[in-house]
Design a protein around this nucleic acid. Structure first.
Lengths: 233, 233
DNA sequence: TAGATTGTTAATCGATTAACAATC
DNA sequence: TAGATTGTTAATCGATTAACAATC
């Protein structure tokens, strides 16, 4: 029983390595050095070797890593050859895109149920999947073993959606909503609200533009922003 | 000139604080303690106070923070009252969803141009925005001042899309593709490929299920995964 | 004044990386 | 053997948090 903690960042990068290895494999490469793989994934090469070392010794000194072998190892570590059933709540938002274009199915994530909270799509078949009304949630979830829940609504019902998923026995939740969600700690929750990333990008742009200053004395009594989630003040 | 480095994680959390403050504001709250705001954003309260301390002293000892005032401060710090023009490449994928449902426009991110690489939507008007063929990229970009580029294709053309955006003078790129993108370092790039998050969730689920083991000797010669981006081996 | 909560320090924790001995 | 590159150590860097003096 090895008790070394695996950094989350390491697990994240493992996926990056895997994808680059796929590219190399398709290109017919047989071996790759940590330097090359690191470059392709924008990572320090010592970082990469350290990441792999948490799981074993996969390379050959003086030579590098065998592409297919390393892929297989990462596959095993990440459980990439498993297949997972997902259910989706919300078709407004990003949910409709997920429903239409199932890129992730190639990666073992199968969308097997979709629930519309607006009622707009309920009953429709979209790419061979029938959209259910949210009222049918319990019945449908009972009849299908679902591993993962995807929340693609952005409203005061976000937490309810999460609760419903938890009750239905999912083990993980991907939350696209900008509302944070609470779940028992054995349920894996990841927030994927990309508008935060936009804010991060524009902050960095603004900082670069003005260079240098952390204003020592902010004192405008500027109005609250004109756009933005109606600040009914 | 204050040279203190602001941790990226701090900037990220600032958005979280802001959104929770919006909720409080709508609920009619006038003041909030670091403990409450921290709880609402799943953060340690010392963390929150430390985050704010990078930018100034916004609270009152023994009392807490004035909700509206703190919102205004974070707004200024993050530049949330600014407005940004975005262009989008790719309507297959998540791009179509962005085009249809413009939730982010409430936050000051305006989609002003969309380019289709498949030609499927070129010429169509979707929610008062005309979709252009990718051939018209240079012309359209020249005639509109674009701050941010969104990449929503997932193909070998990802880097070309990024290069085109850079040539057109964008200052930041949000990349939904699972291909990493290279750009000059004064261009802010954020990767938002959510399939990585799915991999992270399922890794954590699998780890929890088997508990404890970092296998000491992985030696299966299992086949490469059946799904997944055709491993043409 | 007594109670509450901030702002800040110092300790801790975790993640990154340079450097190099091991070894193919 | 000579050259190359891994695996690992130790140093560094950065981020989190407990604790508490300052102070409303």
């Amino acid at each position: 029983m090895n008790t070394t903690k695996i950094p989350k960042a390491t697990v994240f990068r493992l996926t990056l390595y895997y994808r680059y290895l796929q590219t190399l494999c398709r290109a017919g490469c047989h071996t790759v050095s940590s330097a090359e793989l690191a470059k392709g994934t924008r990572v320090n090469s010592a970082q990469l070797r350290k990441d792999l070392s948490y799981f074993g010794k996969f390379g050959v000194r003086g030579v590098g890593y065998e592409v297919k072998k390393l892929m297989r190892r990462i596959q095993e570590i990440l459980g990439l050859s498993k297949s997972w059933n997902m259910a989706l709540i919300g078709l407004d938002h990003i949910g409709y895109a997920m429903l239409q274009h199932r890129q992730f199915e190639k990666r073992g994530y199968n969308l097997v149920a979709a629930f519309d909270i607006t009622g707009r799509y309920a009953g429709e078949r979209i790419h061979s999947l029938t959209v259910h009304s949210i009222d049918e949630f319990d019945t449908v979830m009972q009849n299908n073993p679902i591993d993962l829940g995807v929340i693609a609504i952005d409203s005061e019902h976000t937490q309810q959606a999460a609760d419903a998923f938890v009750r239905a026995g999912v083990k993980g939740i991907l939350n696209f909503s900008s509302t944070l969600v609470t779940a028992p700690k054995d349920i894996q929750v990841k927030d994927a609200d990309f508008t935060i990333l936009l804010d991060n990008i524009t902050y960095a742009i603004t900082r670069d533009t003005n260079k240098l200053e952390v204003p020592s004395d902010i004192h405008s009594d500027a109005p609250l922003p004109i756009h933005g989630i109606a600040l009914s003040v």
